[in-house]
């Protein structure tokens, strides 16, 4: 465990160094972060000028949702995207063997190797928007914050697992770099209450592209409107997809090793 923590720190250090090289990228991405949240808020504002509520949620409640999407986007951007999207590259270039011969679990390596903690803008914006929304709703209590934290972790686990599973497909279909970018869909679809969609789409957004669990549940927790069924559902779903993704990864590694010997 201690060795793993140390490794994570070393990895972060290395990526920070690389990122400092690309300094103008920081500016561009920060701008993109601000614009992206600005887009969502402006969009909401334009929509709420026309209608009083969306799927039964008020403006402030949807605002919390937007903050959560921004926060999760941040995690994907600094962590999952840089790390997991490299899997395809490793496999295509046949560089995967280099990872496999290291005396550390390969899943750990691909997960933590490229953590880019340099840009915290996304996190700051996300948390601010959540805070503003919660304040306006009047739901800032330590209990709600605790719940929010728990369900944010569950969301991150779900997104991680899906991303890993999709990237793992690279072992079988080597030419699908873009598969995992499907994950980005959650940031559009997830910016709205699932209840705002027609019924068939609600099912899709709960079980296939689980924005209900990933964005809606934490937002409900933060605004004190979470039912225990949804809460338990989210936790169960997170556990399920995490185990599934790990299983798929191990299967892929076994196949890879036996095929490339």
């Amino acid at each position: 465990m201690k060795r793993h923590l140390k490794l994570i720190l070393l990895f972060i250090r290395a990526t920070v160094q690389i990122q400092l090289e690309y300094r103008s990228g920081v500016f561009g991405r920060t701008l993109a972060n601000i614009l992206s949240t600005g887009t969502s808020v402006m969009l909401l504002w334009a929509m709420f000028r026309q209608v009083p509520s969306i799927g039964g949620w008020s403006f402030d409640q949807v605002l919390v949702l937007v903050g959560i999407v921004t926060t999760i986007e941040f995690v994907v951007e600094i962590w999952f995207y840089p790390s997991l999207s490299k899997i395809t590259t490793y496999v295509q270039r046949g560089e995967f063997d280099v990872l496999l011969i290291k005396p550390v679990a390969s899943q750990f390596l691909v997960t933590f190797r490229h953590l880019q903690v340099m840009e915290l803008t996304g996190l700051v914006i996300g948390l601010t928007v959540i805070g503003v929304g919660m304040h306006r709703v009047g739901s800032v209590t330590s209990f709600n914050i605790l719940l929010l934290a728990i369900f944010l972790v569950a969301s991150v686990v779900i997104i991680y697992s899906l991303y890993l599973a999709l990237s793992t497909l690279a072992f079988w279909f080597t030419r699908i770099e873009e598969v995992a970018s499907m994950i980005w869909l959650h940031s559009t679809a997830g910016s709205f209450p699932v209840a705002a969609y027609p019924p068939w789409a609600r099912l899709l957004f709960t079980f296939v592209l689980p924005v209900a669990f990933v964005t809606n549940v934490p937002a409900q927790a933060a605004t004190g409107r979470l039912s225990w069924e949804w809460g338990l559902g989210a936790l169960a779903f997170a556990t399920f997809v995490f185990c599934g993704a790990t299983w798929l990864w191990n299967l892929a590694i076994r196949n890879y090793s036996s095929a490339s010997s």
């Binding site: 990228g25 561009g28 614009l35």
Partner: peptide, 18 residues
Amino acid sequence: WSDNALGYDTVIYQLYIM
């Protein structure tokens, strides 16, 4: 001129969306 122009791709994308 810059090592990473890709960030601006997202900026334009966001402008279009917005």
